[in-house]
Design a protein around this nucleic acid. Structure first.
Lengths: 173, 173
DNA sequence: TCCTATCAATAACC
DNA sequence: GGTTATTGATAGGA
């Protein structure tokens, strides 16, 4: 096995990956890691009954978002379109066995769900795609959050809301 | 190896884990998975130059939050308190080698950073700890997001802001 | 909490 | 976008 200088003995999420990854491989890494992260979120939500929301901005400024109930929505939609009776409605999220049933169903038809997920991600894209000047709501305030705590957090959300609304209007006009 | 009924042949994040995990093991699982998720977020941010924000609510309603710039803040604070000259300031996030240096430094002193992270998580806790009635902002709207798209997203953010502000006031009074 | 066996996430390559 | 080698994430148990 040939091993270029500056790489570790193997692949995977090792911190010291290539010392000078070109832009391309960095994008590939980002895409794969983001996919992995979203999967982890889904797992956490489904297996542990947790609520998860994530927002990720790539270096280029593209945005991707995922929320845990949205995944349930995807499952429900899939169930309705295929075999509505066989599977427990996603609303009953307290039953472990039901969740597992749903997850298996989803796994079995990952392809069918993929387009839904992609569509949802696209929504996140749309929010920022037109670039807000490369400064996003959490870019300056998370450190301050430690000192100002809740008021600052509320202000950050104000900024996010304003940005989203501005873009919503821009896109509609 | 003994394998109880209803479990897979192994551990790890297999989807079909125990069919009836008791409350305790479920909490353990949640904690472990959340830790793993946050680590993944840090890696995505550090390795790919991405911005990441996550919020996780456990089934019990406890909240945990992490933002990628906050991690840089932690690193910067650590750097200042230890060997300010040796490490590149966290602000220069574009230099891959600098990031790696920072990450290694952080790994070497994970304990020191842990308390900072814990403090930041506590902020997330505070936001919801007093319970908003167990219904959170993304609980109902993410599915609608697919149809209403941006306007609905903006409305969801409004609700979140209102909740946060309400609790900020409640906690301050 | 720590340990360990097992498998899944993923860096490199195609 | 698919394959593969390697290790990191983690379910279960002490």
């Amino acid at each position: 096995m040939v091993r270029p200088r500056g790489t570790t003995s193997t692949g995977r999420h090792r911190i010291e990956m290539s010392l000078r990854p070109d832009k391309n491989s960095r994008q590939v890494t980002f895409s794969k890691r983001r996919a992995g992260l979203f999967k982890k979120c889904s797992e956490l939500a489904l297996l542990c009954g947790a609520r998860v929301a994530v927002v990720v901005f790539s270096e280029a400024g593209n945005a991707f978002a995922l929320g845990s109930p949205s995944m349930e929505a995807v499952l429900r939609r899939f169930d309705d379109g295929n075999d509505a009776g066989a599977l427990v409605p996603a609303a009953d999220v307290d039953d472990r066995e039901a969740l597992e049933e749903l997850y298996r169903a989803r796994e079995a038809t990952a392809e069918q769900v993929a387009s839904e997920i992609k569509r949802m991600n696209t929504i996140g894209d749309t929010v920022v795609k037109a670039q807000m000047g490369r400064r996003y709501w959490w870019e300056a305030d998370v450190e301050a959050l430690g000192e100002a705590e809740l008021p600052e957090f509320a202000r950050a959300l104000d900024r996010l809301r304003a940005n989203v609304r501005r873009h919503a209007n821009k896109l509609r006009s």
